[in-house]
Amino acid sequence: MLRLLAEGCDYDEAGHRLRIPLGQAYLIATGVPADGGDTVTCAQRDRPGMLRSSSQRLVNPNHSNPTAREDVHAWIRWRVQTDPQMRDTARHRVGADAEGD
Protein backbone atom coordinates (compact mmCIF):
# COMPACT_ATOMS: atom_id res chain seq x y z
CA MET A 1 0.00 0.00 0.00
CA LEU A 2 2.73 2.45 0.93
CA ARG A 3 4.56 1.64 -2.30
CA LEU A 4 1.48 2.54 -4.36
CA LEU A 5 1.08 5.78 -2.44
CA ALA A 6 4.77 6.59 -2.91
CA GLU A 7 4.34 5.99 -6.65
CA GLY A 8 1.70 8.72 -6.71
CA CYS A 9 -1.52 6.74 -6.34
CA ASP A 10 -4.18 8.16 -4.09
CA TYR A 11 -6.29 5.91 -1.87
CA ASP A 12 -8.99 5.64 -4.54
CA GLU A 13 -6.56 4.27 -7.10
CA ALA A 14 -4.64 2.09 -4.64
CA GLY A 15 -7.84 0.54 -3.27
CA HIS A 16 -9.09 -0.07 -6.80
CA ARG A 17 -5.83 -1.74 -7.84
CA LEU A 18 -5.79 -3.98 -4.78
CA ARG A 19 -9.56 -4.57 -4.91
CA ILE A 20 -10.10 -3.54 -1.31
CA PRO A 21 -12.33 -0.89 0.29
CA LEU A 22 -10.74 2.53 0.65
CA GLY A 23 -11.06 2.54 4.44
CA GLN A 24 -9.25 -0.77 4.59
CA ALA A 25 -6.51 0.58 2.33
CA TYR A 26 -6.04 3.52 4.71
CA LEU A 27 -5.93 1.25 7.76
CA ILE A 28 -3.32 -0.99 6.10
CA ALA A 29 -1.16 1.98 5.16
CA THR A 30 -1.40 3.93 8.40
CA GLY A 31 -2.57 1.61 11.15
CA VAL A 32 -5.29 4.17 11.92
CA PRO A 33 -9.00 3.64 11.11
CA ALA A 34 -10.29 6.01 8.45
CA ASP A 35 -13.58 6.58 10.28
CA GLY A 36 -11.93 8.97 12.71
CA GLY A 37 -12.94 6.83 15.67
CA ASP A 38 -9.48 6.93 17.23
CA THR A 39 -7.66 9.97 18.51
CA VAL A 40 -4.56 10.48 16.41
CA THR A 41 -1.37 11.35 18.25
CA CYS A 42 1.33 13.66 16.91
CA ALA A 43 3.52 10.62 16.20
CA GLN A 44 0.72 8.98 14.21
CA ARG A 45 0.17 12.15 12.16
CA ASP A 46 3.74 11.80 10.88
CA ARG A 47 3.27 8.23 9.63
CA PRO A 48 3.57 7.61 5.90
CA GLY A 49 0.22 7.53 4.18
CA MET A 50 -1.60 9.78 6.66
CA LEU A 51 -3.93 12.25 5.02
CA ARG A 52 -3.62 15.87 6.12
CA SER A 53 -7.35 16.29 5.56
CA SER A 54 -10.23 14.20 6.85
CA SER A 55 -10.19 10.50 6.02
CA GLN A 56 -13.95 10.12 6.65
CA ARG A 57 -14.73 10.07 2.91
CA LEU A 58 -12.81 6.81 2.62
CA VAL A 59 -15.39 4.99 4.76
CA ASN A 60 -18.42 7.23 4.23
CA PRO A 61 -18.52 8.08 0.53
CA ASN A 62 -21.07 10.54 -0.80
CA HIS A 63 -24.46 8.99 -1.24
CA SER A 64 -26.43 9.17 -4.43
CA ASN A 65 -30.17 9.13 -4.74
CA PRO A 66 -30.97 6.42 -7.29
CA THR A 67 -34.58 7.58 -7.61
CA ALA A 68 -33.31 10.55 -9.59
CA ARG A 69 -31.71 8.32 -12.24
CA GLU A 70 -33.52 7.77 -15.51
CA ASP A 71 -32.77 4.03 -15.50
CA VAL A 72 -34.55 3.77 -12.13
CA HIS A 73 -37.58 5.65 -13.50
CA ALA A 74 -37.58 3.35 -16.56
CA TRP A 75 -37.49 0.30 -14.28
CA ILE A 76 -40.43 1.65 -12.24
CA ARG A 77 -42.45 2.27 -15.45
CA TRP A 78 -41.68 -1.26 -16.58
CA ARG A 79 -42.76 -2.68 -13.19
CA VAL A 80 -46.06 -0.78 -13.36
CA GLN A 81 -46.66 -2.04 -16.91
CA THR A 82 -45.95 -5.67 -16.00
CA ASP A 83 -47.70 -5.85 -12.63
CA PRO A 84 -51.54 -5.99 -12.70
CA GLN A 85 -51.91 -4.65 -9.15
CA MET A 86 -49.61 -1.71 -9.88
CA ARG A 87 -51.46 -0.97 -13.14
CA ASP A 88 -54.79 -0.99 -11.28
CA THR A 89 -53.40 1.36 -8.61
CA ALA A 90 -51.99 3.70 -11.27
CA ARG A 91 -55.37 3.75 -13.06
CA HIS A 92 -57.19 4.62 -9.83
CA ARG A 93 -54.66 7.30 -8.94
CA VAL A 94 -54.99 8.98 -12.35
CA GLY A 95 -58.77 8.95 -11.93
CA ALA A 96 -58.53 10.45 -8.43
CA ASP A 97 -56.14 13.16 -9.65
CA ALA A 98 -58.55 14.07 -12.45
CA GLU A 99 -61.43 14.41 -9.96
CA GLY A 100 -59.38 16.72 -7.75
CA ASP A 101 -59.07 14.28 -4.80
Rank of each mutant, 00 (worst) to 15 (best):
G15P: 04
R57W: 14
R93L: 12
A74G: 09
N62V: 11
I76K: 06
P21L: 01
Q56V: 11
T67E: 11
P21D: 04
P21Q: 01
C42W: 12
Y11W: 07
I20W: 00
R19Y: 03
G37E: 11
R52E: 09
S54Q: 08
I76T: 09
A96K: 14
E7V: 01
H63Y: 12
L58E: 00
T89G: 07
S54D: 10
H92N: 05
H73K: 15
Q44E: 10
P84H: 08
A25C: 14
G31R: 08
S64V: 13
H16K: 15
R47S: 01
R93V: 12
P48I: 03
S55D: 07
M86C: 11
I28R: 09
T89M: 13
E70R: 14
S54L: 08
N62C: 10
R57I: 13
N60L: 13
D10K: 09
Q24H: 11
L22F: 13
E99C: 09
Q85N: 06
G15T: 00
T39I: 13
G95C: 09
N65I: 06
S64D: 12
Q44R: 09
M50I: 04
N62H: 11
E7P: 05
Q44H: 04
R79Y: 03
T41V: 07
Q81C: 13
N60K: 11
A74N: 12
M86Q: 15
V94Y: 05
R19K: 15
C9A: 14
A74M: 14
L22C: 07
I76R: 13
T67S: 12
E70W: 09
G49R: 01
L18S: 02
I76P: 07
H63C: 14
L5P: 04
V40Q: 03
G49I: 02
D71T: 11
G8D: 06
D71M: 10
V94D: 10
L5E: 01
C42K: 13
H92D: 08
A29D: 05
T39R: 15
P21C: 00
I28K: 02
L18W: 02
E13C: 07
C9S: 12
M86I: 10
V59S: 03
P84A: 13
D88H: 05
R79A: 09
